[in-house]
Amino acid sequence: MDITVNILLTIATAATPLLIAAIGELVVERSGVLNLGVEGMMIMGAVGGFGAGYLTGSPWVGLLAAIAMGALFSLLFAVMTLSLATNQVATGLSLTLLGLGLSGMIGTGFVGQPGVRLPNLDIPGLSSIPVVGKLLFGQDPVFYISIVLTAAVMWFLFKTRTGLTLRSIGDSHASAHALGIKVIRYRYLSVIFGGACAGLAGGHLSLVYTPQWVENMTAGRGWIALALVVFASWRPWRVLAGAYIFGAVWIGQLHAQAFGIPVPSQMLSSLPYLATVVVLVLISRNKRLTMMNTPASLGQPFVPDR
């Protein structure tokens, strides 16, 4: 029983960064912007979070620094794609490349240093309830943030007027502009929100998941988050489900390696990436469904004609 609970707990820990990064990117894409820089913003969040936590000794400062780092880094993308109307695919890629390089450089002095870990929430009494206690009341704070964030984004996008406006921009920026909606302003805010989320996801990696700094420690999670958004057909609750499925795959292959299953560890390690490909194929096979759900102006630059 304990083993099951522990496995479920580790799945939640593995799923949380994927969920947060994907929810952020979902909002960005709903506003019609494709930011392929998730991996770069995430790794910058990871190094910023670790650095601030290590230098101040406070994991909470670290977490805030991670969010700020991700948001700041995304601003670079926003200026390029929104104010200068550059190609979003290429700019997102360069954000990832720059982030991987910059984080490696910033983190040179952090390699091998002991990090600080965000303590688990531990409500006396409640968390000692068998099975559900630990799962519901004894996890790390970011886990709760991720759940609240998902619910909040779901409510914001589908129950508020501003959310509706944001979605309309994603579907037709020209019409939204003609209606007097500040397309560029909405998109700036969306991109920065996405950056903050990616930064938080990175901070979770270096302050909770493995409280240390390792170069390239995001290991493609930013890209998987991007795939999750497609998999979820741009619906928040499906992102939640997808993130937990991928968390399970990630943890499953780790456990399989630990149990010494007679399959090369490298093949098990490649499972999450292969699973991403398979899932993408399954979901995009239905061309009409994808076309219907994809924000119609996704990835297209917008220059207001005044």
Partner: peptide, 21 residues
């Protein structure tokens, strides 16, 4: 750190894309 090379490369791409505007 020789990661400075990656930073240079990343910056270069950023500026190229910006200048293409």
């Amino acid at each position: 750190s020789d990661k400075v090379a990656r930073v240079f490369q990343g910056m270069l791409l950023f500026f190229v894309l910006g200048c293409d505007t």
